[in-house]
């Protein structure tokens, strides 16, 4: 111990405040890992397998078409935000699959904690790139690891829409996604998705069942009515998917601030919501058929 040189010169007694210091160079530690599960619970091999299995659905069932993919940077962090739809949302896998195949870089999908509480589903979801939507997680992914992160600002209010309310964007939370992007110093890239709403439309909801099960909504979908309650849970209708990536939105603020102006955050969030809503209307005007685009 005597051999060790004191590395903290200043003795700031009595405070529980740490003293930042540059870490000295250290040789690489032995790290005998057996699997490729990363700190987020994501496994690149599971992800690869999921992409292999999902590829045919992506290409032949939903026949996904992208527009404006060049707006997503090849490197550096960015927060992707999209409209959210379908009783069991079909948009997240489509967006993650598409970007990972086209750009060859991982996408981490932020989602409700609810996933984490579900046995098997929660584990598979984490292995496939899902991350609990905690501001600390988003900051670390975006700022420190410069990753692409996907978030649906509508939260569960998006997929809870009934068929009659399709493509009507809900409130974008309290604009937390904008604040995270500001703090992380990354742009927000809005993505408009057309097709997800019709892949599993909700006919009506059963609030008492949702309450009993402790889930945000209990849907009765057209898929369930046609295919039965079980097959209806996984059998999506083959609606034609079209996605349009809008230009990145940069915020003119310093990153790593403790607090950002609430009104600026709300204004920026609302601007992004309006831009997405208008893009959706544009795309719907041009759409001739739900099934063929």
């Amino acid at each position: 111990m005597a051999a060790r040189k004191p590395t903290v010169e200043a003795k700031k007694a009595g405070t529980l405040v740490h003293l930042p210091r540059q870490a000295p160079e250290q040789p690489e530690l032995r790290d005998p890992r057996l699997s490729d599960v990363d700190e987020w619970g994501r496994s690149e091999s599971t992800r690869q397998m999921a992409r292999t299995l999902y590829g045919p659905i992506y290409r032949n069932w939903f026949r996904v078409e992208w527009e404006g993919l060049e707006n997503i940077p090849k490197d550096g962090g960015a927060l992707l935000v999209a409209n959210h739809a379908a009783a069991i949302p079909s948009d997240a896998p489509v967006i993650m699959h598409g970007i990972e195949e086209e750009l060859g870089r991982p996408v981490y999908g932020l989602a409700d904690y609810l996933f984490k509480t579900m046995p098997v589903v929660g584990t598979m979801w984490a292995r496939a790139g899902g991350v609990p939507a905690h501001p600390e997680n988003a900051y670390r992914l975006l700022r420190e690891q410069q990753q692409l992160v996907l978030v649906f600002p509508e939260g569960s209010k998006g997929p809870a829409k009934t068929f009659a309310e399709r493509y009507q964007l809900r409130r974008f939370g309290r604009g937390g996604f904008v604040e995270i992007a500001m703090r992380a110093g990354v742009p927000v890239i809005p993505i408009a998705v057309v097709g997800a709403e019709e892949s599993m439309p909700i006919m009506f909801k059963v609030p008492s069942a949702a309450k009993a099960l402790g889930i945000p909504y209990f849907p009765v979908t057209a898929n369930m009515l046609l295919l039965g309650p079980l097959l209806g849970l996984v059998g999506y209708f083959p609606s034609k998917f079209k996605l349009r990536v809008l230009p990145p939105v940069h915020f003119d603020v310093e990153p790593d601030q403790d607090r950002y102006s609430r009104s600026k955050v709300m204004d920026e969030a609302e601007d992004i919501r309006v831009a997405l809503q208008e893009t959706l209307y544009d795309m719907l005007k041009a759409r001739k058929s739900i099934w063929f685009g």
């Binding site: 111990m1 903290v8 007694a13 740490h18």
Partner: peptide, 14 residues
């Protein structure tokens, strides 16, 4: 021995 004041997590990498 280094008189390091404050709160610290002590946990391995990863």
């Amino acid at each position: 021995s280094n008189q390091v004041a404050g709160i610290y997590n002590v946990a391995g990498d990863g």
